[in-house]
Design a binder for these strands. Sequence first.
DNA 1: GAATCTGTACGATGGTTTTCTAAACATCTG
DNA 2: CAGATGTTTAGAAAACCATCGTACAGATTC
Lengths: 107, 107
Amino acid sequence: MYAGRGSPGSLAPGQFERIAKALADPRRFAVLETISDAKEECPYQRLCTLFPITKATISHHLKELVSAGLVETERDGQYVHAKVIPGVLEAYTTELLRRAGRPVAQE
Amino acid sequence: MYAGRGSPGSLAPGQFERIAKALADPRRFAVLETISDAKEECPYQRLCTLFPITKATISHHLKELVSAGLVETERDGQYVHAKVIPGVLEAYTTELLRRAGRPVAQE
DNA sequence: GAATCTGTACGATGGTTTTCTAAACATCTG
DNA sequence: CAGATGTTTAGAAAACCATCGTACAGATTC
C-alpha cells in the first residue's frame, strides 16, 4: 500500500491525483472529516457506528485515504486507529492553487 | 445550469461537493489547468486541439466545470471562450482546510 | 485449542461517469 | 436561403466505483 510520502510540504508522484479522487466521494470525505475531528486518534469502530455502511466499506474508504497519504492507521492489539497525517492536505491545496489558481484580478 | 455563486469568498450549497468531483478526473483537471494558464480567455477550439478526446467530451467536461462554478463560458459569435472565475478555488481550499485540516502539530 | 471479536480481502452488483458516434443547434458567409 | 464551420445534446458502450455479503486472518478470552 504505497502512500508516497515525499519531502515535507511536497507530494509524491501521483499523490495529487489520488488525493483529488479520495476527496471526491462525499461519504469518504465525511470519514476523513471525522478522523480529523478526533482529538488524537479515531478508532475504526467509531467510524463503523457513525456511518450507515458496513465495516467492509469503511475499511475500503480507509484504505483509499491511506493510499492517498492523507491518513495513517495504527494497530493496537485487535483495534485499529486512524489519524490524519499533518501537512498533507495543506500541501495538496498549495499544489492545487499553484496549478489551477489565478492571481485574483483587481477591479 | 446552476453554478451557485454565493457571497464572495464563500461557496453555495452543494458547490463544495461539485468542485471536489470536478477536480477528481485527471483529464478534466488538465482542461481546467489549460483554461487557467490562458492569459485572458481560452478558446474552446484550443481545448479540442490540445486533448486527444472528441469535442463532445470537451463540451461535457466544460459543462461540469461550469456547473461547479469554477469556470465561466462566454459566447463570441460562433466561438466559445472559457475562463476561470477568480476566487472560487481559493474559497474551496479554505473550506477544505477548515473542514478537514488539523493545526500543524509542534514537536 | 475453541470460541469470539476485530478488521481485511474477495467477488458480485447496481449505479455513476467517461467517452464515443451521430444528430441537432447556432452562427457566419456568400 | 444554402452551405460551411463551430458547439451542444442524445443515446449507447465501456470502464469505474461504492457498497454489500461472505469468507478469511489475527488477537483475545475461556
